[in-house]
Amino acid sequence: MPISKSEVKYTADLARIKLNDEELEILAIQLQKIVDFIDKLKALDISGIEPTSHVLPLHNVFRQDELTPSLKTEDTLKNAPSKEGNFFKVPKVID
């Protein structure tokens, strides 16, 4: 099933990336090529194989419930594109 422009648009919306029409078109073609390539995995028999999400056999890594210093508020906010008082500021969120 070829990747349609509207599918790329849906995906770009999910990823919150604005793309113009031309970009959508190019991406549909490029994604199609890449997806055709990665589709080669479908030829492989993977029944009974466990997925690897961690290549190291590590488990049970914890920290103790102990306080560590927080950032100074000025350091927290110094990179903010928009702020007021102690807050980060964003365009109004409408539910």
Binding site: S82, E84, F87, F88, K89, V90, P91, V93
Partner: peptide, 16 residues
Amino acid sequence: KLIHEGTDSSASYVDY
């Protein structure tokens, strides 16, 4: 937490 009532009515304010 998002706070919607601030000095700027077109903005929301974020406290993490």
